Amino acid sequence: MSAETIDLNSVVTLVVHHKVRREALPSYEVWLRRTVAAARRQPGHLGVNVIRPGGEGAMFTTVVRFARAGQLQAWIDSDERAALIQEVSPLLEEGDHPLIHNDAEFWFTPAHGNVRQPPKWKQAVLTYLVICPLTMVIPRLWAPAFERYPVLGGVVPSNLLITLCIVVPVVFLIMPWVTRRCAGWLRAD
């Protein structure tokens, strides 16, 4: 599915937390590779990010994005996923914990329940620091096209193009990466 056909208002995210038994980590990694490959074959699949545990933890967080809620639901309800979950269950300490999000709130969702969500002001600062530079750079990059093709330079077309060029990389690339890199600061008191 190309970026031009994605309705950003319909994108949904499945966040799955798995606390893996220490002795089962190698088996879980093999299972995870097969599961990610299976998810990628699903209609409407937009991407998968796996956040592996750091330090002493064994909590894996998998973020799977789909273009539409119905496509995500089809994957969740599929026999293939049910078989994969049944297969992995003995490797887990606390079972399968899928959460569905239909907006950007997953950026700041804690990896496991005993960690509180970062303060709103930190979420706002981080989001501002990501979006602000893009709002200064992206319009300048489009300026030559707007001059050459005045129809694109109109208020509505130019804003649609600029917003698309900011929102798509922020949602799919930049914010997931930035929140992982800033996790310590986000959690600090």
Rank of each mutant, 00 (worst) to 15 (best):
104 A>N: 11
3 A>T: 10
10 S>E: 15
58 A>R: 11
122 K>N: 07
115 V>F: 00
119 P>N: 06
118 P>I: 11
97 H>P: 00
136 M>P: 00
36 V>R: 08
58 A>S: 15
105 E>N: 12
28 Y>G: 04
144 P>K: 10
66 F>K: 04
47 G>K: 02
180 R>K: 14
174 I>T: 07
53 P>E: 07
16 V>N: 14
65 R>T: 09
121 W>I: 12
149 Y>T: 12
153 G>N: 06
163 T>C: 09
2 S>G: 15
93 E>P: 00
120 K>S: 10
106 F>E: 04
122 K>A: 08
185 W>C: 04
3 A>D: 12
188 A>Q: 09
157 P>L: 11
77 D>M: 04
138 I>S: 01
182 C>W: 11
185 W>K: 06
64 V>C: 12
31 W>N: 02
9 N>W: 05
146 F>V: 05
66 F>H: 05
133 P>G: 05
162 I>G: 02
34 R>L: 10
27 S>V: 01
33 R>N: 09
158 S>H: 09
74 A>W: 05
28 Y>P: 05
175 M>P: 05
41 R>V: 02
124 A>Y: 07
175 M>C: 07
65 R>H: 13
119 P>W: 08
139 P>R: 01
92 L>W: 03
111 A>C: 02
37 A>R: 14
154 G>C: 07
35 T>E: 13
25 L>Q: 13
161 L>Y: 06
186 L>V: 03
68 R>Y: 02
184 G>E: 06
141 L>S: 03
164 L>G: 13
165 C>E: 08
25 L>N: 04
63 V>T: 14
29 E>V: 07
78 S>W: 02
146 F>N: 07
57 G>D: 14
77 D>R: 14
136 M>H: 12
129 L>C: 13
137 V>L: 14
